[in-house]
Amino acid sequence: MAKRIDVSGLHVYYGDFKAVEDVSMTIEPRAVTAFIGSSGCGKSTFLRALNRMHEVAPNARVEGKVMLDDQDIYAPDVDPVAVRREIGMVFQRPNPFPTMSIYDNVIAGAKLNNQRLGRTEADDIVERSLHGANLWEEVKDRLSKPGAGLSGGQQQRLCIARAIAVEPAVLLMDEPCSALDPISTLAIEDLIAKLKENYTICIVTHNMQQAARVSDQTAFFNLAGTGKPGRLIEMDETNKIFTKPDKKETENYITGRFG
């Protein structure tokens, strides 16, 4: 189920502006890879390029190769919709569909795609996904209530349940805890640790302790200078990045001596 992602020589452009330059990395299956770096260094852009979400912005394009196991996701005939079914995403701000109940939010992937689900099949998916997102106990008695009525942390877990309900191979998380309180953050981090048994997980975070806690691999991104594209500075075992990184830039960033 979990798949490996191989990125080689990836450049991301918004029109004429080059946002990310020449990134190559391997993202291991059944592991958590954290992307850290200062704001605007292109880590979110890079993350979105992994499931072609950057194409939502007009004029965005990439050069380079992204392989999902043995398939090139940027091959000419590949439909971005098919890519996104394989590579799910959780966003910075919880975004449950306001018109749908908790139940419908979880099976939104199937419902919005006009897939016919049997009642028991749908019930199974909902229960399994909510268990997977550690939310079942809290919402099992009010599945028909609107998803927007949950607390922020619950909403974010609902979004994770929604993302894993379509059984993707990879889960991308773009600062999933930055809008949450410490308790909810802890709940999400526990969940990430559990999810990595079955999924390939990439997480963008500004919180270095979080990266240190949840990830197996850490990639550090930085800008070469104002107006210059972001680059991958260093990627290694999380332990190594946070104890003795190879590059001076990385060390400056993680110890707070920036610039």
Partner: peptide, 27 residues
């Protein structure tokens, strides 16, 4: 309609026209 909802739908592998019909218009 917030862009986040459109993105949430795209991220679930929903094509654009279904996103418009089933997410944007109902909202």
């Amino acid at each position: 309609v917030p862009n986040e909802l459109r993105e949430a739908s795209y991220a679930l592998g929903v094509p654009k026209w279904l996103t418009v019909v089933k997410v944007v218009l109902p909202t």
